[in-house]
Design a protein around this nucleic acid. Structure first.
Lengths: 227, 227
DNA sequence: CGATTGACTCGTACGGCGTACGATTCAATC
DNA sequence: GATTGAATCGTACGCCGTACGAGTCAATCG
């Protein structure tokens, strides 16, 4: 019957001989699957991840994946969470600089997601993996130490969360290539009398995304944290 | 050959007799297709929209849709933009209350998207339809009249845009049903020593989404607009 | 009036997807 | 040596988006 991988992994050592395997493929494992899924997502985007292709890259049959994973959704969830692991800076013990800490955490979060542009669009699935939760926990703690009252903490967390994922999604989808920019340019000049302000400020064409992110974040933090 | 619907719609009057059609189905049209797609999306979510089902609802064959539309992607783009139409309030001519105007626009935007929870997750496709563009144009104008310098306008617009779509996506995906809440509750208490702050503040369980949105928005506007 | 045209509809078919199912393999155990 | 169970994988099924080409009918033209 095989209860499938059920939380507790099997005890037998996994097959190690590669008898028929093409060259010297290591055996499947959840870790390899997730790591390869991230590679594939980086290379081909969300639509490029197919179970068969993932299996090809792993040198295995497509159906072998389903021993380690319930379905494709779970691959997405695991890939997303794996990309959001937070490596804290070299331990600024008892740092008094709460604000700097929070800013660093949020900028690192955004950077992690921009390194894997597909990740932002996967966030709005409510699967909160351990890495996401631990980021939220850290953020809560830092804000709490910064003096934000418990009653205001959720508002603060969600405001920041919303801002970060919004900024990341926007950046990932509206950071146009030169070709795209030329096309947008053309389309806009054709409609210039309808959208004069957009055209004047070149809203869709030139943007200092990083600077804008930092500025809006500062304003939010000014409001959310006491004095 | 049929160059397909190419911008200029045909001039002949469309077939009107419903000869073989089951009852009294009106003929296909882009408007009907988009309206029905919105219905279907509201009822079944993003994954529930299939060309065959859409055609069923319209009382037509699946392939008939492709006369009016290039592909499924275009259906999504049109449905999204149609949902974002902005009906301005009863003309507050020369209103001096720029801030109130901006807040109203952004809250209306969020409300429009929450009425169609699938819409938020479709925004990060760079297809900017006329309704989205016109919202951006209005917003730009209002902020400009509020005294925001051109040089700061893009930062302001994007900050607000990011905040609004982030908040909407979050709200749409984390507003748990009672069952979900119970499950999350259970999972969290099991991990309570790992995420004590999250548990203490009930971050994932109880939220005043509307209040939080409004508060964060106020802070952003405080920073973004002069004095 | 009959022939032609072109807007519009749709049945069939194809390739690709996620994955259910059952057979197979092999190391560890008895 | 027989049994067990973890892990792999080939085949097949149902569903998807849509290419293709044939069909239908109203308006047009001679």
């Amino acid at each position: 019957m095989a209860a499938k991988r059920s939380g507790a992994q099997g005890k037998r050592s996994p097959r190690t001989d590669a008898s028929l395997r093409s060259v010297q493929e290591p055996p499947l494992s959840l870790e390899r699957i997730v790591a390869t899924a991230v590679e594939l997502l980086d290379a081909e985007g969300v639509d490029g991840l197919k179970m068969r292709r993932l299996a090809d890259r792993l040198g295995s049959g497509a159906m072998s994946l389903y021993w380690h994973v319930d379905n494709k959704e779970e691959v997405f969830d695991l890939a997303l969470d794996s990309v959001l692991e937070y490596r804290a800076p070299p331990q600024t013990v008892e740092s008094q600089d709460w604000r700097g800490e929070v800013v660093h955490m949020l900028e690192d979060w955004r950077a992690s997601m921009l390194r894997h542009p597909w990740s932002a669009s996967l966030l709005p699935r409510r699967a909160l993996g351990p890495n996401i939760l631990s980021r939220l926990e850290r953020l809560s703690k830092a804000l709490s130490r910064a003096g934000v009252a418990d009653a205001d903490l959720n508002v603060a967390i969600w405001s920041l969360w919303n801002y970060v994922i919004g900024a990341t999604i926007t950046r990932a989808s509206f950071d146009l290539s030169d070709d795209d920019r030329a096309a947008a340019q053309q389309r806009l000049t054709r409609l210039s009398e309808r959208y004069p302000t957009i055209e004047r400020t070149r809203l869709l064409l030139d943007n200092d995304w990083d600077g804008a992110f930092r500025k809006g974040l500062d304003f939010l933090l000014d409001g959310l944290t006491p004095r």
